[in-house]
Design a protein around this nucleic acid. Sequence first.
DNA 1: TAATTATGAAACCAATCAGTTGCAAATATA
DNA 2: TATATTTGCAACTGATTGGTTTCATAATTA
Lengths: 113, 113
Amino acid sequence: MRRDIFQAISDPTRRGIITLIAMQAMTPNAIAENFNTTRQAVSKHLRILTECEIVKQEQQGREIFYSLEIEKMKEIDKWLTQFREIWETRFNQLDKVLSTMSADRQAIKEQKK
Amino acid sequence: MRRDIFQAISDPTRRGIITLIAMQAMTPNAIAENFNTTRQAVSKHLRILTECEIVKQEQQGREIFYSLEIEKMKEIDKWLTQFREIWETRFNQLDKVLSTMSADRQAIKEQKK
DNA sequence: TAATTATGAAACCAATCAGTTGCAAATATA
DNA sequence: TATATTTGCAACTGATTGGTTTCATAATTA
């Protein structure tokens, strides 16, 4: 049962939970109200998210408030870096192509004169 | 069997394939050599990645070259935006706290004089 | 033409998954 | 103290997953 953040975010309900508690801590009951599923199912998702350390708990009496461990989200961002480099390079290359085209057109214009 | 990109990247082998073909197109056989699994299993992964439009094929004779559809990766980046906003805000807040602390220390210093 | 190579697809399997129902423990309230 | 509320956990279920083996098809090469 070795879980990682990529498996954690693969489920749409879990992504929903992550988004929901990103701004404010919430109890399992309150979270479950937002989804078309049972409280127990949400509880299981929370366990998975806790195991992955995407979520942290804070007990207050008999209630437990769950909130997002935002730092963990950076791991996805980190993995994306390699691809971001590629699409930025392509963009720069396109930029280069466009300016070259522009220069060429200018040259043609000059030639016509 | 409705698949999305988050499910596609949840499997470590698929993430490996994505990284592998990010820079250059490769055939299924060549890809499979890089993983401790059969060619057929890789073929199945490629089918999933193709269904999600993360990967594109180009037939050359009896060989098929698979390459990354980098634009699709931006969808993950887009989803991350909401969290990036949070961690950047927190960073700015920390920045504010630090400068306030600095000002306080300065005030204490001044008081001591 | 016959053999080889590259590939996808089908059938099957064990493991895992997301969900449900039922229950126990702890806390709060009447 | 008795009852209600909040929660996690265990047992079960049907669906899905990632993998293997086997086979069919198409293109290349001897």
